[in-house]
Design a binder for these strands. Structure first.
Lengths: 191, 191
DNA sequence: CCATTATGATCCACTGTGTATCGTAAGTGC
DNA sequence: GCACTTACGATACACAGTGGATCATAATGG
């Protein structure tokens, strides 16, 4: 395959990721053609396939980079007990990278991208988990936290300005983090 | 267009809805072709287009029927203050119609179907709302309730048997309904 | 029973995908 | 700086899926 150290390759892939991000902000994923991505990136159509097997591979890479960046910042906060601090960090991190997160999480393809981010986050976290899950409840809780926060952020980014960042952090803490923490400490009987 | 009272039309459309439901349980939506739907339904390819403009129109109708059925049963419960009862009703209703809900909410196209159900539910509820939303928080809360419960049900149906119905109802009440109720009664300052 | 109308079969133009080829241009290593 | 390597753009292609059209056939409702 292509050499990764070649400056042309780096340029081309960056252009493709950028084009994908822009287009995903404007329209649903299945309305975006490979030709449109290539055209937006300013590269030839066939060249696209030298770098990515298909549209979804490119989307996966974009989502993956986003998740890595996000996790690096947010994970340390999740480990400590300060739920409000964690919520604030998440909200302000998104706010600090508004264009790309708005495009991908709340844009025309947000649906698909959130599903991909959820999938990759679950895989990543499963691999790097501190302690093993103690039962189905742990799996459920983790799934719920990630999907609920992603969906809440999507709403927030689509209604920019409707709720200020600190209020949003409080909402995430009170509607997701704290209830889930209570559930874990006092599980339903029968589990 | 086609006459709705003609027995042939009724039969054909039922066959198409059934085929769509079955196929949606098996594979992601964009992997399902109109030809496959027509073949599964036992009707001609071109006949499909006499009844639905495209695949998505059929999916919309299927989702719409599902939502009507669900709402008829669940809405009265949501109006009262008995949150645990409402959660139990939701869970047992889904359990009582397991095949179709499992197929559509948790199946191969669950992603797309949940998005469609969320969309249609928001539209329906906006039209029949008891009182007008009092601000952005009401909009947000409604979006969160519907999407969080749909996602939790999807997890539950995909991990059938992992959590029993009563425990699931308790979880929905404690992680969604009660926190949201608290939020509404005591909103973050600044809203 | 008969006029109506949905249906199945088939054909077609159109769009998007992914592969192959080939001459050109740019980058890399010495 | 120069030669070698490799990515690139352009183009052509087979293939799959879409949605519209036609027409003879069969089911339906009055």
């Amino acid at each position: 395959m292509t050499t990764v150290s070649d400056a042309r390759v780096v340029r081309t892939r960056e252009a493709l990721r950028r084009a994908m991000t822009e287009l995903a902000a404007e329209s649903p994923l299945d309305a975006i053609t490979v030709r449109a991505i290539a055209a937006r990136a300013g590269i030839g159509y066939a060249t696209f396939f030298r770098h990515y097997a298909d549209k979804d591979a490119l989307l996966s890479e974009v989502a993956d980079l986003l998740i890595r960046e996000f996790m690096t910042e947010v994970r340390p906060l999740l480990m400590q007990r300060d739920r409000r601090g964690a919520a604030r960090t998440i909200v302000y991190f998104v706010l600090g990278h508004l264009p790309i997160y708005k495009a991908l999480i709340a844009g025309g393809s947000g649906e698909t991208v959130r599903a991909e981010m959820l999938r990759q986050t679950l895989v990543t976290m499963a691999a790097t988990r501190q302690r093993q899950p103690e039962g189905p409840l742990d799996d459920f809780i983790f799934f719920h936290i990630v999907s609920a926060i992603l969906n809440q952020l999507a709403w927030w980014l689509r209604h920019e300005g409707a709720i200020d960042a600190d209020a949003m952090a409080e909402i995430i803490e009170r509607t997701v983090l704290t209830p889930v923490s209570d559930l874990r400490q006092n599980p339903p009987k029968g589990l």
